[in-house]
Amino acid sequence: MIARVIFDTDIGSDVDDALALAVLLGSPEVDLLGCTTVYGDTLLRARLAKRFARLAGRSLTVVPGAADPLTARPVWWAGHEGALFPDLGDEQVDDGDAAAYLIDRVSRAPGQVDVVAVGPLTDLARAITAAPSFARDVRRLWIMGGRFDGPEPEHNFRSDPEAAAVVFGSGAAITVTGLEITTQVRLGAADVSAIGAAGPLGSALKAEIEQWWRVRNTEWNNPHDPIAVLTLLAPGLFTSSPDGRVTVGGDGSSAFSPGGGRTRIITSARTGEVAREIVRRIVAAAP
C-alpha cells in the first residue's frame, strides 16, 4: 500500500528533520506529496528541504509556513541553520501558504493523506482553525512531540503550546511519539559512516550530523523525527496505547488519558531495529 504523505518540518536546526526527510525519500511505499516548513526562518528551511530532495535526485514541492507561534514568544534559533550550503539562496521554493496547501491537498483526497509533523504544530493549528473539516479529512497525523513520562516539556510543544492544544483538541486521528521513546535510540559513528557513503545526499547528511554533534558537544544524536516517520512506515517496530486524549499545558507539558479520543501514544520501540531501519532507508534514498 502506498502512503500519501505531507511532511511538516522545522528542518535545519536539529539534524533529525533532515534525516526524517531522507527516510521518506528512501521509502518506496511513500508518495511524498510535498513538504511544509514551520517556525523561524521558514524560507531558509524550505530551501534546505529543496536542497536535500535535489541531492536525492528528486523534485519536491516545498511551501514555507508560519514563522511565529500562535502567541508571542521567542523563536529558538541555533544559528548554524543552512551554514553548510553557501549557495542555498539559489534554491527556488514553491509559492503559497503552508496552511492553505495542507487544506487543499487533504480536502482533495479525504481519508487518503497522512501528515507527518515533526516541528512546532503552528501550521497544523492554522489549517484546523481555517478549515475545521481538515481534522476529519486527514487520514492520520503522525507527530513527534511531547513527553509522557513526566512533566518536562518537549521542544516542539513548548515552542507553541497553543498550537499543540488546538491540534490535540481537533478530533483528528493522531499517533504521537514522545521524548521518552525517541531518546532511547542513538545514532553513532558507524551509522554516520554508512550514511556518509550514500552518494551526495549521504555526504551532505553526514556533514549536517557532524555539525549538530559539534553544536551539542557529543558524538551521537537521537533521531527523534525519523522515529516518528517509522511509526507510520514500520508500525511493527512499535507498540502503542489504546485511543485516548492528549492535553497540553501552557508551558508545553503533555499528558495522556486513555479513552474518549482518537489519539494514540507510542509506548515502546524495538530500539536496535529502529536505528538500523533508519539508516537503511536513508542509504536507499541515494540516487
Rank of each mutant, 00 (worst) to 15 (best):
L102K: 01
A234N: 12
G150W: 12
V279W: 00
A135H: 08
V93G: 01
R280E: 02
L25N: 10
P64E: 07
I143W: 10
A255N: 09
W142Q: 14
S240H: 14
H80D: 08
S133Y: 05
D10F: 12
G260L: 03
W142Y: 13
R158W: 04
D41V: 03
A100V: 05
L21H: 04
G82E: 11
F157L: 09
G79H: 04
I6R: 07
I209E: 03
P151A: 14
P120E: 03
H155R: 13
D225K: 14
R276E: 01
A78V: 14
D243Y: 12
Q92E: 08
V138N: 11
S27M: 01
R216C: 07
R140M: 10
A194I: 11
E81M: 10
E154R: 09
I11D: 04
V248K: 13
Y39H: 10
T9C: 06
L19I: 05
A190Q: 15
A99K: 03
L141A: 06
P151M: 12
A67K: 14
R108Y: 01
K50N: 06
H80V: 08
T71Y: 11
D251I: 15
L24V: 03
V30S: 04
L48G: 03
A117F: 02
G171N: 08
D191F: 11
T61G: 06
V5L: 05
M144P: 04
R58F: 02
P235T: 10
D94E: 07
A83F: 07
L43F: 05
A100G: 05
T129S: 12
D243F: 11
D17K: 15
T36K: 02
T231H: 12
A49N: 06
R58K: 14
S257G: 08
A228C: 12
V23K: 07
I103L: 03
P120G: 02
V246M: 11
G249L: 12
A18K: 07
W76K: 13
P86K: 08
C35I: 12
F85E: 10
S253Y: 06
S170D: 06
Q92K: 12
A20E: 08
D123T: 08
A207Q: 09
L70V: 09
S240D: 15
T42Q: 05
T122I: 00
I278H: 00
P161M: 09
I11V: 06
G249M: 13
E154A: 07
V215D: 02
G96S: 09
R158K: 13
E210D: 10
V113P: 02
Q211K: 15
G26K: 08
L88A: 03
S27L: 02
T42N: 07
A234F: 10
G196W: 14
P226V: 10
A127L: 00
I181W: 13
G272P: 01
V15I: 12
I6G: 06
V116T: 01
R136G: 12
V115W: 00
A189I: 13
V279M: 03
A284G: 00
R136S: 14
R126C: 05
A255I: 10
S27Q: 04
R105W: 01
A3Y: 11
V167E: 04
D137P: 03
T218R: 11
A164S: 15
V30G: 04
V115T: 01
V185R: 11
V274Q: 05
T271P: 03
V62H: 08
A66E: 14
T239V: 15
G146H: 09
I181K: 13
P86Q: 07
E162L: 08
V106T: 06
